[in-house]
Design a protein around this nucleic acid. Structure first.
Lengths: 147, 147
DNA sequence: TATTGTTATACTCTATAACTATA
DNA sequence: TATAGTTATAGAGTATAACAATA
C-alpha cells in the first residue's frame, strides 16, 4: 500500500536529482551558474525588471540580486539602466547576447522534453501530466498549510 | 503534440522545486543543512563509512567531506573514530542523536508520501510510478551519453 | 516614513593544490 | 608510488544590518 507511495516519492526525488545534474552540466558551457540562469530566465519571461522585482521573483534578498546582476553585467548577459520614472530604482534588461542565450535555453528545453517524453504514448503521457498536476496542487496546499 | 511533453517537463520541474522548498523548510528545525542531511542519510543507509566513501557517495571532493563532518561532529550528529585496519582512514558513524534524527527523517518521508499520494487510486498511482521509472531510465541514458 | 539599491560583513558549500601519514 | 585526510586558499550564493538617495 504505502510502499507504492514511497516508491513514487523515491522516483520523483530521483528524477529531480537527475534533472538538476543535467542543468548543472549544461550551464558552464554557456558561461552561467544556476543562480544566474534563473535571473536570465525571469528577464526572458517578464522583460526588463527593477532589481526589487527580481528579488521577489527569485525569493532572494536584495543584496543577493546586486551580486548576481553585477556578475551578469560583467559577463555581458544583462545591462542596467535608470528606471524611467523612479530615480531610486534600476532596470535590468537582457543584452542581445543575453537574449540569444535565453532563446537557446528555451529551444533546448523543448528539445529536451521531446527526448524525455517522446517515446511515451499520448494517453499515458496525458495521464502522467494529470497525476503530476494533482500532486503539485496537493504539495502546494501542504506547503501553504505549513507556512 | 510536443506541447504535452513540454507541459510534462514543466510539471516535473515545478514539483522538484516544491519538494526542494519543503526540504529546505524542515531542516533548520533539526539543526541540519541540505549538504549535511545528505551525509546523515548516507550513514543511515550504509552504516559507518570512511570519509573517502562519503566523498564518492556524495560526488564531492574530499575537502568538502572534511568540512561537513567537522560541522556534523561539532553539532553532535556524527563521531569520527579510527579505521580498524587502515590507519590512514577515518570512520564516520552516526551518534545516538544522529541515528534518532535519521529515523525521524525516514518516518517523515513515509508520512509525506502518504500525504502526497494517499488520495490517488492504486491503478493511477501504479501507472504514474511506471511512467516515472521509464523517464528516469531515459534521462539516465541521456546523461551517460552526454558524459 | 517607506523603499531602492548599495557597502560591509559573515556563513555555507564547493573546488584545487600542496602536504603529512600511511599503505 | 598511491591513497586518506588535512591545511590553505578561493569563489559562488546567501543572509542581515547600516546607509544614502529618493519617493
Amino acid at each position: 500500500m504505502a510502499d507504492h507511495r514511497v516508491a513514487a516519492l523515491d522516483r520523483v526525488l530521483e528524477l529531480a536529482l537527475l534533472l538538476h545534474e543535467d542543468l548543472e552540466r549544461s550551464l558552464p558551457a554557456l558561461g552561467l551558474t544556476e543562480a544566474r540562469v534563473k535571473v536570465v530566465w525571469v528577464l526572458h519571461q517578464s522583460g526588463p525588471c527593477a532589481q526589487r522585482d527580481l528579488a521577489r521573483a527569485l525569493d532572494v534578498a536584495p543584496r543577493t540580486v546586486t551580486g548576481l546582476v553585477d556578475a551578469l553585467e560583467d559577463t555581458g548577459f544583462v545591462a542596467r539602466r535608470p528606471h524611467p520614472t523612479d530615480r531610486r530604482a534600476t532596470l535590468v534588461a537582457l543584452t542581445d547576447h543575453g537574449a540569444e542565450v535565453a532563446a537557446t535555453l528555451a529551444a533546448g528545453q523543448v528539445e529536451f522534453a521531446d527526448q524525455l517524453f517522446g517515446g511515451i504514448e499520448p494517453g499515458e503521457l496525458a495521464a502522467f501530466v494529470r497525476t503530476l498536476g494533482a500532486t503539485v496542487e496537493r504539495l502546494r496546499g501542504l506547503l501553504e498549510a505549513g507556512a
